[in-house]
Design a protein around this nucleic acid. Sequence first.
DNA 1: CCTCTTGCCTAAAGCATTTAGGAAGATGCA
DNA 2: TGCATCTTCCTAAATGCTTTAGGCAAGAGG
Lengths: 199, 199
Amino acid sequence: MARAGLTTERLTLEGAELADEVGFDNVTISAVARRFDVKVASLYSHLRNSQDLRTRIALLALAELADRGAAALAGRAGKDALVAFANVYRDYAREHPGRYAAAQLRLDPATAAASAGGRHAQMTRAILRGYDLSEPDQTHAVRLLGSVFHGFVSLELAGGFSHSAPDAEESWARSLDALDALLRSWPEPGPEQHVPDPG
Amino acid sequence: MARAGLTTERLTLEGAELADEVGFDNVTISAVARRFDVKVASLYSHLRNSQDLRTRIALLALAELADRGAAALAGRAGKDALVAFANVYRDYAREHPGRYAAAQLRLDPATAAASAGGRHAQMTRAILRGYDLSEPDQTHAVRLLGSVFHGFVSLELAGGFSHSAPDAEESWARSLDALDALLRSWPEPGPEQHVPDPG
DNA sequence: CCTCTTGCCTAAAGCATTTAGGAAGATGCA
DNA sequence: TGCATCTTCCTAAATGCTTTAGGCAAGAGG
């Protein structure tokens, strides 16, 4: 019986392809086994279980995304860097929706620490060097930027902007304009606001 | 054999509870049937299939969220309205993580149109009446606000901010300060930016 | 009381997950 | 080359979720 040459890496990569084609939620051990024309149980020599597969796809996506981010930031600063980096997220999500969904998988702390997640935060911080923010404000800005990138991209991917004019493209450009302006004049803390009771 | 009094509504509600307890992905027909101490097949008189159940939970969550948003906006304007509305999202997501995850479910266009999604967009637009934005800019701002709310909340829920100081609470407040400032001086479109080729 | 609708049941088939243990191909060493 | 060993992939089987088909009985209406 000819060997298929399974490795954890090849399985992960194929799982990522599958995620992009049929959605991350539909990535199963069985589906990957079918793509290699191999019995399901064979995969368990390389993967602990199906959660293990999903986690590996998530780590792959985070690493790919970080690599692209680093490439985009090279030689850029200020708004140029901001826009280039933001587009990396958006383009990646559009090219690889399954992988992007995988990157949102909740990882346990140990796994998260070993992931490329830290590189993302570092790169966002690097963008902020082009602006004049105090140390604690940088952290807030990092989080706001992350929120906008992730939020916009996932709402767009979920079809949230697809049924109304103007098109998402323009809103994206204008949102980045707005973020750039915001970072150039980052406001002082406002007065305390009343927070309504949930209920 | 005593009847359990199953209805689509009760099943949906119980499914939502279950989602909050064990995660939206773990809501299954079987699990809900167990909660009612009823055989699995019995649920198929009330639900078309498990996707139907998930969709109904999503619609429930969107409606609840819209109701809370409307309550929060009543009698408020400007930054006060912005903060109150934003906190509705964040509080709801923290109180009901499973429901919040459900609200992110991708709905087919017909279902989405019949959902409370439109109310959300309307309310966000209402907030912008407290600021001075041209018509097309309002749409961009609606999308940016939606992105920040959703993005921040889901990153926080995914534990993205939990392993570094300062705490998420403060970043949230400062992000809302920043959005308020941004809306008060919404920038003109910037110059064209180079968009790097994905690859 | 009888009938009919409805609500919940049993039964069964299909598919995904996971473990246990076996056989054949690749590898290393004499 | 021949043998031992390890790795890779296999069969088999248990478990659980999904979904459909068909049946019986509880409760409503006449």
